[in-house]
Design a protein around this nucleic acid. Structure first.
Lengths: 221, 221
DNA sequence: CAGGATCCTTAGCGATACTG
DNA sequence: CAGTATCGCTAAGGATCCTG
């Protein structure tokens, strides 16, 4: 049963919160910023939300025009399935959530064990990259939690897109937490590679350039 | 008893929401954007929050370094009292909340009867003003809910500050809802003045210039 | 009177189990 | 896989009462 309580305040901020202020709602939007996702993918990315609450939030966001359900793209193996994606209205939340995320980086760490979704790390990677005209370009295939992303670093700017790259300098398979730690400390790559938490195929220096595009930035995602 | 539940997610967005994501927290911050306020003023501006929840939110925000309690300034009549004000960290939320408010303007109206605080209207007034190099300047004294503000319009930009102006072209006394309706439709000023919802002393054209600095903008606050 | 604290009720949340 | 159903818990809502 969807939540229907309102702040009953005409202010724009309160009205925004009537739509995306319920618990978990903004994190659902966050998960959809980079690509549409299925229900089970959202569950995996947000392991601390129970399924009924997630279903409620999705329904409310859909009713409020922030999220849309569409048939899953044919390319994915599950045919009869659906995905949730942001509407244009929902996409307008992107700069707001990114700014909120930058503010939150200065907030205390959550109590362990903390979740960390692929989307979170990739958003952080995009936002924390330091523009640098001298930085050489690199395109990496990145496999995270079984999903493939195309990550392009150019002039120190990083662009992330869902799906297989058409061409890539290297392919990196790892998990979000390891990737996050590699962004904090790229020199730990050898260790991560040694114990199997990260695996590279192709040009390792391309991966290194990518990892270092955010270094000497405030840590943590 | 303060709320202490966490999303347990290392993402910056989730960590921000651990701090300001509880119900009413962002609206408390909104109320403090323009000036420090006392507990009773916050209760008046946020009539739909119960006093225990408001006290909880203030304590949590204080513990998290967003809000600070300080002795009330001597100029106000209540001596032994305290005010809540934003810390530097809290002030950094301003652009985020303003952006959220712009997004929320497109959201559905809340069910009546809806609250509308002085701060909400003034924030809207500041943000919705249309820069216009040809617009003549005006300084108005504005009395809203018994509090006095200094509102300066210059080149179509509007600046709001708490407290009495040193000099003003006009003084307007009204209430937030009437002011909001006047911003939507400045021509209704005569009616509002006639039935006592608005009263001007001084240069009425200065008030008119102020009101019209936001007109032909999307309506509602 | 400002600034809460206390008490009670309700509704949203969290966890688990279950179904098409 | 994609949700529903159920249930105990806890935060929110509302009123009242206390304290300097």
């Amino acid at each position: 049963m969807p939540t229907s309580r309102s702040y009953r305040d005409s202010c724009g901020i309160a009205r925004a919160l009537d739509v995306i202020g319920e618990r978990w709602a903004m994190l659902v939007v966050r998960e959809l910023l980079l690509t549409p996702q299925r229900f089970s993918e959202l569950r995996h990315s947000l392991p601390n939300v129970s399924s009924n609450v997630l279903a409620d939030r999705l329904r409310e966001l859909e009713n409020n025009g922030v999220v849309r359900r569409t048939p899953a793209p044919a390319q994915t193996q599950a045919q009869g399935s659906q995905v949730y994606e942001l509407t244009e209205r929902g996409r307008q939340l992107e700069p707001i959530l990114l700014a909120l995320g930058e503010w939150g980086v200065e907030a205390p760490e959550p109590p362990a064990p903390a979740a960390l979704s692929a989307t979170s790390v990739l958003i952080f990677l995009q936002g924390a990259a330091r523009p640098d005209p001298a930085a050489p370009a690199a395109t990496c295939r990145l496999e995270l939690d079984g999903r493939v992303w195309t990550v392009r670093s150019e002039s120190g700017r990083v662009q992330v897109a869902a799906g297989e790259p058409t061409t890539a300098d290297a392919s990196l398979r790892t998990d979000p937490k390891t990737l996050s730690s590699l962004l904090v400390d790229p020199s730990s790559f050898a260790a991560a590679s040694a114990d199997g938490r990260a695996a590279v195929v192709g040009d390792r220096s391309a991966v290194d350039r990518l990892l270092r595009s955010v270094t000497s930035t405030t840590a943590h995602n």
